[in-house]
Nucleic acid binder design. Sequence first.
DNA 1: CTGAAAGCGCTTACAG
DNA 2: CTGAAAGCGCTTACAG
Lengths: 340, 340
Amino acid sequence: MTTRPGARPTMNDVAAAAGVGLKTVSRVVNDEPGVAAGTAERVRAAIAALGFSRNDSARLLRQGRTATLGLLLEDIADPFSSVLGGAVEEIARGRESLLFTGSSGAEPQRERELALAFCARRVDGLVIVPTGTDHRYLLPELAAGTAVVFVDRPAGRIEADAVLTDNAGGARAGTAHLIRHGHRRIGFLGDLPQLYTGAERLRGYREALADAGLRYDQRLVATGRTDQATVAAALDRLVGGPDPATALFTGNNRITLAVLRALPRLPHPPALVGFDDLELADLLSPGLTVVAQDPVGLGRIAAELVFRRMDGDREPPRRIELPTVLLPRGSGEAAPRTGR
Amino acid sequence: MTTRPGARPTMNDVAAAAGVGLKTVSRVVNDEPGVAAGTAERVRAAIAALGFSRNDSARLLRQGRTATLGLLLEDIADPFSSVLGGAVEEIARGRESLLFTGSSGAEPQRERELALAFCARRVDGLVIVPTGTDHRYLLPELAAGTAVVFVDRPAGRIEADAVLTDNAGGARAGTAHLIRHGHRRIGFLGDLPQLYTGAERLRGYREALADAGLRYDQRLVATGRTDQATVAAALDRLVGGPDPATALFTGNNRITLAVLRALPRLPHPPALVGFDDLELADLLSPGLTVVAQDPVGLGRIAAELVFRRMDGDREPPRRIELPTVLLPRGSGEAAPRTGR
DNA sequence: CTGAAAGCGCTTACAG
DNA sequence: CTGAAAGCGCTTACAG
């Protein structure tokens, strides 16, 4: 049976066609008990004849929930974001929840617009990789009972759940690894220290130096933009001069990639440990040694936490830190050239 | 002003607080003209005092649309899916549309469940990377006016828009590239030929052989599962024996990766061209020659098409094929060993 | 076993 | 300039 495009039959249409009340149709559609077999059969026939399917948006409006989670990433096209998102999706699936997904593109303004758009749709919960540093705009939503969990970076200026990587610990371990292999001049190439993860990783680097009794030398540290040209210039600075770096610790994936692309130009490539893993890292020569994060764990635990909050957990905001894993593959185990 | 958690003020609450009618609140909230300045001010004060924010789900129910697109990928965590999804997101953003996202995990059953769940929420349109081969379950939705566009693979058993890669052309070009470099024994490692993309790429491989007057030899073709062990075994078969392959064409990313991991074991690594690009492909040694697809283009064009349909385009279903690009980086330009 | 009425939070169509 | 009534497509609470 064909109806004109755009015209969907409703429960009312089914009720009329079957010659029953609206509520009886609702009972059949939702498999509620207490409908005579014959009545149910007529209703089902009408449903099939009209091609009826329940409008879940209307249903959920009446029920006062949306069975929907908002997932706000930095950039869905980025492997870290998408793997994290995949883990959130898997947990959400087990809870019969659909997912609104959006990317902030690292723009606080867009983060806010999207987060509030999700809330305006009345998502039951929000999992957010924040970009901005002031999340007071979410206070009314939190007060209204929306569950919000921050991932990868903590919330700014509000108290909220956060699931984070042990950034400082990871950077400390990666730097210590280079020190253990004989390096004393270790360069750090990182994000802007205004970014939470950037600052934490720099802190870990400094801690490792201090642990080993090495002094912190600002000339070995470059933080800023992560495009190829900027990183290449910073690299030249760190490995040039009278007392150059013999090893590098790179503070994130984009920087690691830029360094890898710039390394072939150098006569004496430094040892290298990168923060965060890359898909083909083991196939490079030498293999790329990294401090690996756990994006799956971040997403899974954040999603589990947001559902726990939705289930009524009213404990004070939690901060969970996931450990990193050092994966030695060759690039981080080279001895310093000057040490030979 | 704090309310008890879970209790959101509605327009009715605002109207009561401001001492005006419901419709006046609606006018102020939606910036409609025709409200006296003083009245509007009182309403805005009440909105601020109560912390009101409009429920867009309720609004959209009344308006008969959802301003939402459903995006069904194979696996959001996979780079191809996520890059394609990012392009869809960007187009959707320009149209003020939110995105429901889900992954079929290559399971037809799950694809169907998710697609129908999106439709039950009454998404305005659906962009779907199909896994199943029978999409008649979408006929009622299409009849009801939901815009549906298939990406990467065409729909099965229904007529619908499809935005595809020129799989056969790409595989043909990649294979011809190897032939041009002197190879006469070229192995093909591919997906199951039941999969659309797998079959098309095998077809392109055969066409290139025919173009060059080379005969098709089944002993040089392996199709099936794409896990490491299966691919490694197939590789051994193709490069072993009396008349081995001197070059390989790999039919997708997972296979290319598995081959790269297995290659170091071989005494005489064959030349290699892979279908689909990898992030670090240029940093391998030798660089990996690939036939690159355009996941951004696929997503963007599919999204533009779905919006055009939503805008009322009733032309017959379209099939759009995007070209591939051959990127020579070293692995595909090695001459055959036996030719030396 | 069945269904009429009210309501979820808004907008639409209309009247003053 | 303002607002009461009806309605979007369902469920809830209740009465028979």
